[in-house]
């Protein structure tokens, strides 16, 4: 019995060591960390370039079935068009590492964006995963909304229907649209923190 307890405690000690420390990801109401990445034309874009505007960050991977659901149904492009028309900056970010699903060279990205009728302000490439990890991006899609002062207003899922079924889009509550509509009309954001759903980011 003693031996058992001993081995049990050794196991437990190991488990304890493996426990992660506190998360460093940005929190709602806090400053969204600045970053600089290249878009598909090689132009450098920094979050700080867009001070004074609402900014949406959308983690994406065109080959993920959850992302495909929101592009094939037209949901994501429609929201991108609607919000950029209202002056919102929309940055789609691809954090797939080279050799992993969703990694594309800039020229291939231009074609994908056209085919998907994607309409972000810019598609930023993050193959090192630095910005993805900085924001704690776990899934594609994983959405963040930043206010004109650079504070994080919303993080989490695109909507409340965690599925790959395009038919669910029609009945889903889109959290990003809701947060932006509230913020743009000067109201506090009702739902600011949800659990993102999707494929894992292919770091």
């Amino acid at each position: 019995m003693k031996k058992f307890l001993k081995s049990m405690f050794t196991g437990l000690a190991l488990l304890g060591l493996a426990a992660p420390t506190h998360a460093k990801e940005p929190r709602i109401g806090q400053k969204a960390p600045n970053f600089t990445l290249q878009d598909v034309r090689g132009q450098k874009r920094s979050l700080s370039d867009f001070k004074g505007q609402y900014v949406v960050l959308e983690w994406t991977n065109p080959d993920c079935p959850f992302v495909r659901k929101h592009y094939d149904s037209g949901n994501m492009p429609a929201l991108q068009k609607e919000m950029t028309a209202k002056g919102v900056v929309w940055l789609a970010i691809a954090s797939s590492a080279k050799g992993k699903q969703g990694y594309y060279e800039p020229s291939a990205w231009e074609k994908i964006l056209r085919e998907k009728k994607s309409a972000p302000t810019a598609l930023l490439r993050d193959p090192a995963g630095t910005v993805g990890r900085m924001y704690g991006a776990k899934t594609t899609p994983h959405m963040f909304v930043i206010d004109p002062e650079g504070l994080l207003l919303y993080k989490g899922a695109i909507d409340d229907k965690p599925s790959t079924d395009p038919d669910d889009v029609a009945t889903a509550k889109n959290y990003v649209r809701a947060a932006l509509e509230e913020a743009l009309s000067g109201k506090p954001v009702t739902t600011s923190d949800t659990s993102a759903y999707g494929c894992s980011v292919k770091y």
Binding site: L5, M8, F9, L12, L15, G16, A18, A19, P20, T21, H22, S195
Partner: peptide, 10 residues
Amino acid sequence: EKLSEPRIRR
């Protein structure tokens, strides 16, 4: 999302 992996004691 709110809690880290626990330390487990018997």
